[in-house]
Computed example of a mutant assay.
Amino acid sequence: MDAGATIDDVRDRTETERTRLGSDKVLIAATDATLETDAVLTAAATRESGLATVLDRWAAETESAVATQFETAAEDAAGRTDRIDADAGDPDGFLDHLETVSGTAQRVGVGLVAAPLIADQLYLQVVSFFINEADEQRADTFREIRREASALDDGETALGYLSESERETAAAAATEAIEAAYVDYAETLEAMGLDPKPIC
């Protein structure tokens, strides 16, 4: 598989989890059922700030061309944190999972493929929240943040530096990270007495 096919493979493997992570319940889980502007901003700032910190550390620990992609992605996440303009809270389940990842290929999969795919779903609901709040300025800001945070350019470039077997490793790590994010989401909702599965 080339880089593009690797990303498509991750999408195919995680379609169910990603769809559920894009439901309107994701902000209930992310804010501990506090669906207010400050709580939503804190959840977004937590994700971007935590991602920036981890990616920056990975860049420093990586002795290959992939370090540049980690560094660029870290700078971008830090920039989004500044635009969100809110204090970060305690790390969420996905950020906790990032702390367990070692190995360059695994980190490429998790930080540069899984993270953008998850961000696309999270920010879909953040945009919807601010539309419902009639806060068009913040809705526009988060449309832009969603577009940037879900971009896979760094991931595709980094995957291109890896061997085919390493890309398979990256895909497996990305799939595992998305599944871990879903498990955390599901367990959080279940603890609130809510069903994480969509009502059909």
Rank of each mutant, 00 (worst) to 15 (best):
M1G: 11
A3R: 03
A3P: 05
A5Q: 08
D9H: 07
D9L: 12
V10W: 07
R11L: 15
D12F: 09
R13L: 14
R13M: 11
T14E: 00
T16N: 12
E17C: 03
R18D: 11
R20S: 06
S23G: 13
S23Y: 02
K25M: 11
I28M: 04
D32S: 10
D32L: 06
D38I: 13
A39C: 08
L41A: 06
L41I: 08
A43H: 00
G50C: 03
G50T: 02
L51P: 01
T53G: 13
L55R: 13
L55D: 06
D56A: 14
D56R: 13
R57L: 14
R57I: 11
R57P: 10
W58E: 08
A59Q: 03
A60Q: 11
E61W: 03
S64F: 12
S64W: 10
A65Y: 12
Q69C: 11
E71Q: 10
T72F: 13
E75W: 10
D76K: 10
D76L: 13
A77S: 08
A78T: 07
G79N: 02
R83C: 04
I84E: 01
I84N: 01
D85M: 06
D85C: 04
A86I: 10
A88E: 13
P91G: 09
D92W: 05
G93S: 09
F94S: 07
D96Q: 15
E99Q: 11
A105K: 03
G111H: 00
V113C: 06
A115I: 12
P116K: 07
P116F: 03
I118R: 08
D120T: 08
Q121K: 13
L122W: 02
Y123N: 00
Q125A: 11
V126Q: 05
V126M: 04
S128F: 07
F130P: 00
E133V: 03
A134P: 05
A134R: 14
D135T: 12
D135Q: 12
D135C: 14
E136S: 15
A139M: 05
D140M: 09
F142Q: 01
E148C: 06
E148K: 10
S150P: 02
S150V: 14
D153F: 12
D153S: 14
D154F: 15
G155D: 00
L159I: 05
L159P: 00
Y161A: 11
E164L: 06
S165C: 00
S165F: 04
T169K: 10
A171D: 03
A171G: 04
A172T: 08
A174K: 00
A174S: 00
A180E: 07
A181W: 01
A181V: 03
V183M: 04
E187L: 12
E187W: 15
T188M: 06
P196V: 07
C200R: 14
C200H: 12
